[in-house]
């Protein structure tokens, strides 16, 4: 090629075109397939995220095997509680329809702590929620300080025994009066 004054500038221009081509081709290759499917982002991610496995189910999940407890709880003051809140996420218990492990069911000190995590009196807790000072409550009810909560309050229906007892005593009083 004959050397002339503009060859360098022309070659430089070609380099520029090459760089632009590289970006354009790079983008073609690197652009995710589902880009722009719904908007300016990778559309597939929506399905990837939607498909992510849940760890917690709902109470209806538990119902299919534990109908009895479900019914008991569903008509108690604890009806709004999630079963998995006190036990554990369902994935730790059931896999593909089969039981893989026992659900934890806390007792004694752990149980007291669990109950008190909601029912302990504390600054900031709403007034219309059943709260107790644990030791005072045990003293007032004249039970041993070592009592665990479920000795009076069955956890799935905390007021079951209480109302029961109240009813009986009331009736007894009626009987006595007669």
């Amino acid at each position: 090629m004959r050397d002339n004054s503009k060859v360098f500038a022309i070659r430089l221009l070609l380099v520029l075109v090459g760089i632009i081509a590289l970006v354009v081709i790079g983008r073609k290759i690197m652009l995710p397939k589902s880009w722009g499917e719904y908007g300016y982002y990778r559309g597939d991610y929506i399905n990837e995220e939607a498909n992510r496995n849940m760890k917690y189910g709902t109470n209806d999940t538990c119902k299919s095997c534990h109908e009895e407890v479900y019914q008991l709880k569903a008509h108690s003051v604890h009806k709004n509680l999630s079963c998995e809140m006190c036990h554990a996420p369902i994935v730790e218990h059931v896999k593909e329809g089969k039981k893989i492990a026992k659900m934890p069911s806390v007792q004694n000190k752990e149980q007291i702590a669990l109950c008190l995590s909601c029912h302990q009196e504390g600054i900031g807790r709403p007034k219309n929620f059943p709260l107790i000072d644990h030791q005072k409550h045990l003293r007032d009810q004249k039970v041993k300080p070592t009592h665990s909560c479920d000795q009076c309050h069955t956890v799935h229906d905390p007021m079951e025994n209480i109302t029961h007892a109240r009813k009986i005593t009331t009736l007894k009083e009626v009987v006595d009066e007669r």
Binding site: N53, M54, Y56, G57, T58, S82, E84
Partner: peptide, 18 residues
């Protein structure tokens, strides 16, 4: 989002006792 698309409530809503 993964729960909502499966017709479930968010985990925190499900867990909230009150």
């Amino acid at each position: 989002y993964h729960r909502v698309r499966k017709g479930k409530l968010p985990a925190c809503v499900n867990a909230c006792p009150t």
